[in-house]
């Protein structure tokens, strides 16, 4: 069992997302520590990309702020090294295929293993293209996390069977961003997942309130929240850490 899978062994897992370097890496580091302190089970670290095609306006803007602040992949690796002095929960990178490809898959994933990144999520790498990075992921023991969408239908079983780490269940059509209501009937999707794998699954996209997190945790193993946290960063900038901590605490509390 990977370190990520073990994180799901106990209670429901809250997985907050943050774009690294928004507005600077100091703030990211502080926010991550606050997330850990307030009950995050796994943390998704976004490596910004110039053209994040799966993101809505909120995370697009965060990517832009981070890149304008001069963040690079290497600087993010250094930040993770710092975090790993005291942070022990699983950390996963969320970025786009070209960021990894451009860095070199072997070099990127060996560095992940060295600094203690446990998995990667690449929203523009569907099941059919996993071979692009899977060999390097396997070689260095980094989980390549697969996604399942409301449109996946007959693909759910195929993806579930090969899943590692955890399965990222996309709650709704469209790009990332908060939604007033999650309308997709997720329970039948998760039933198929359960029939095909023992790997845990967490739901993301559109979750912003404790009630939504509670509802999602009921039918799955965890909830992933991005845009709602990025909105806090957009509002409070360098002073975001306590607000982020507070938010994580409330979300986690609703899931117990």
């Amino acid at each position: 069992m990977s370190k990520i899978a073990r994180a799901f062994a106990g209670e429901k897992v809250f997985i907050p997302f943050i774009t690294c370097g928004d507005p600077d890496l100091d703030t990211t580091e502080k926010c991550v520590r606050e997330m850990v302190k307030n009950g995050a089970g796994i943390i998704e670290l976004g490596i910004p990309f110039s053209d994040p095609t799966a993101e809505g306006p909120v995370i697009q803007a965060a990517n832009l702020r981070a890149l304008n602040g001069g963040v690079t992949t290497n600087k993010i690796f250094d930040m993770v090294k710092n975090l790993r002095q005291d942070v022990i929960i699983p950390l996963v990178f969320m970025t786009y295929a070209n960021v990894v490809f451009s860095y070199g898959a072997e070099k990127f994933l060996s560095t992940c293993a060295k600094i203690g990144v446990d998995g990667i999520i690449l929203p523009d790498l569907p099941f059919e293209e996993r071979e692009e990075f899977l060999p390097a992921c396997r070689k260095f023991g980094v989980d390549l996390i697969s996604m399942i969408a409301p449109t996946s239908e007959s693909r759910i079983a195929m993806i579930s069977k090969e899943a590692e780490g955890f399965l990222y269940i996309v709650s709704s059509l469209g790009v990332t961003g908060t939604r007033a209501e999650i309308k997709t009937d997720l329970a039948p999707m998760i039933k198929i997942v359960r029939e095909n794998t023992k790997i845990p699954c967490a739901i993301g996209f559109g979750i912003s309130t404790p009630e939504q997190a509670r509802d999602m945790a009921k039918i799955s193993d965890g909830a992933i929240v991005g845009s709602a946290i990025i909105k806090i960063l957009a509002q409070h900038g360098k002073n975001s850490a306590p607000y982020v901590g507070d938010f994580v605490r409330k979300m986690k509390a609703a899931m117990i």
Binding site: T53, A54, A97, P123, D124, L125, P126, F127, E128, E129, E132, S146, M147, I148, A149, P150, T151, S152, E153, S154, R155, I159, V170, L173, G174
Partner: peptide
């Protein structure tokens, strides 16, 4: 889907079907 090493389908799962 390939032209030599080029091409492929690097898109979100939502669009695969």
């Amino acid at each position: 889907s390939r032209f030599g090493i080029h091409g492929g389908q690097y898109i979100p799962e939502t669009l695969m079907n």
